[in-house]
Design a binder for these strands. Structure first.
Length: 202
DNA sequence: AACATGATAAACT
DNA sequence: GTTTATCATGTTC
């Protein structure tokens, strides 16, 4: 067995959000909500490069009540409501004042599968349990109540369980659902595990 | 008015 | 099985 290490604040302080988005593949995201534990291995991410990225809520250094969380020091959660019903979870990165973030889009279920199915109102196991950012958050019990929450626990944290991937096991491509960003939408800022069954479908 | 989505249903192959 | 259209839903700007 590989050793388990909880990712600490320093890990998230890098300004290289593309590296971080890629490196988060294979890391384990754990939540403990009302004492109920669930976990997934991250299989799909997207980088949002703050000020220079038209697809980012913080494009051009935009500061609003919603985006303020992204300007906090790396290592906290940015959770916002999308389309009035989906709670999208991002990892804030870079030092305070640099609003970079990584959207976590999908994972492979590891712990608490019955609870996750219950939250998703599914009566049999399906691939969509934790595929797609809205579904993933739902399964893990993540809501906007966790916006700004530190990723060092006790409610939510990330672990390195020694799972590593080679470059050729990772695919990079355009981000999903950001057509409004024009040519920036075509930047290859989405990363996912090529052979995984647990990624969101096109 | 726009929005970093997902469930569903209908009409395909 | 797959693609396509439609719509639910509420906060932000």
């Amino acid at each position: 067995m590989s050793k388990v290490k909880r990712l600490d604040k320093n890990y998230f302080l890098t300004e290289d959000v593309l590296y971080l988005a890629k490196d988060l593949l294979g890391k384990v995201l754990v939540t403990s909500i009302e004492g109920q534990r669930t976990a997934v291995m991250i299989t799909e991410t997207e980088a949002y490069k703050g000020p220079v990225d038209r697809a980012s809520h913080a494009f051009g250094g935009r500061r609003t009540r919603r985006t303020e969380t992204m300007y906090l020091p790396g290592g906290c959660a940015y959770v916002y409501l999308c389309y009035g019903m989906h709670h999208l979870f991002n990892v804030v990165s870079a030092p305070a004042g640099v609003p970079h973030a990584v959207l976590i889009r999908a994972g492979k279920p590891l712990e608490g599968v019955p609870l996750m199915m219950d939250r998703r109102k599914m009566d049999k196991m399906e691939k969509r349990l934790t595929a797609g950012p809205g579904s993933l958050s739902r399964a893990l019990g993540i809501s906007t109540a966790l916006d700004g929450e530190q990723l060092e626990g006790p409610k939510i944290w990330m672990e390195d369980r020694g799972i590593q991937f080679q470059e050729n096991e990772i695919t990079a491509g355009p981000r999903i659902g950001v057509d409004y960003a024009g040519e920036h939408a075509l930047w290859p800022y989405r990363f996912y595990l090529k052979s995984s069954q647990w990624v969101s479908k096109r």
